[in-house]
Design a binder for these strands. Structure first.
Lengths: 141, 141
DNA sequence: GCTTGAACCTGTAGTTGCTACAGACCTTAG
DNA sequence: CTAAGGTCTGTAGCAACTACAGGTTCAAGC
């Protein structure tokens, strides 16, 4: 009957394998405060707990959703403050959503311009190129 | 009758004002080879010709269309090679267009996920937050 | 001619979000 | 016991700028 049952811990490589996160990135997240400083073995090797793994998952999902590191830091500290409200999170998520929509709009404009240029471009050996002309300012982009 | 009529030249600040480009960025473009090294006054101040201004315009339009610095460098050297073909430019533009379309697709996925999360989020003082739950891995993102 | 302030010069550091390397140390299998 | 691999640290690199410090130089007013 183990009194202080050692929690199942893993080193950085194992955490990387399990989470799918690059091991250098794990260290980076620790450095910038997205992960807590983990326990260490006597010789200094990091030992990650399942909680650490969960937090890394949180961070990775946040990044996949396009949140910036600063936003994730804010979300983490919100979550860790005992009294966080859904409203605060909603604000962050909605404004992030708005910025994604803005990015999509911008990219669609690019897409439109480029499509038009490419459509007018004959390719091949032609000596006059609409794409180059547009870049050179000889016709509207 | 001026034999060597000095071409109308301008300094960096004037070029920045005319083109709308940040003056530090002009120097940066020179350093990375998107702009040629301009003439200098005796005391070392840069003197830009109208051709330099045109090239800066080319670079800026390229950036606005989302081309990377490397791509613009390639486009410039294509244009300066006496025998460039429209086909080569078309290849670059089409593959760039493809990458923009891919970015749009990715962002739309994000938009969809975030919209769903935000829609399920009541906001206010609720103690259970779908956004946080999703990030924590308790429900699908 | 002199002063003052703007513009310009150079080199370098910061941004964001990683990724990768060198050189040392530790661990583990055979 | 040794060899290979994992881990440690610090640091440099990527894109594409942007900004600053500390030093000239220019241009206008008196």
């Amino acid at each position: 009957m183990a009194i202080t049952k050692p929690r199942e811990a893993m080193k950085r490589g194992e955490l990387g394998r399990r989470s799918g996160c690059n091991i250098e990135t794990i260290r980076y997240y620790e450095r910038i405060g997205l992960l807590p400083e983990p326990d260490r073995t006597d010789s200094g090797h990091r030992l990650y707990s399942p909680e650490d793994q969960a937090q890394l998952g949180f961070v990775m999902r946040g990044r996949e959703l396009g949140f910036s590191v600063a936003e994730i830091r804010a979300l983490l500290s919100l979550m860790n403050s005992s009294e966080f409200t859904c409203g605060e999170v909603l604000d962050m998520a909605s404004s992030h959503l708005a910025s994604i929509k803005a990015k999509i709009r911008d990219l669609r404009k690019l897409e439109k311009s480029l499509t038009r240029l490419v459509r007018n471009c004959e390719g091949g050996e032609a000596k006059d190129c609409p794409v180059i002309d547009a870049l050179a300012g000889d016709r509207p982009v």
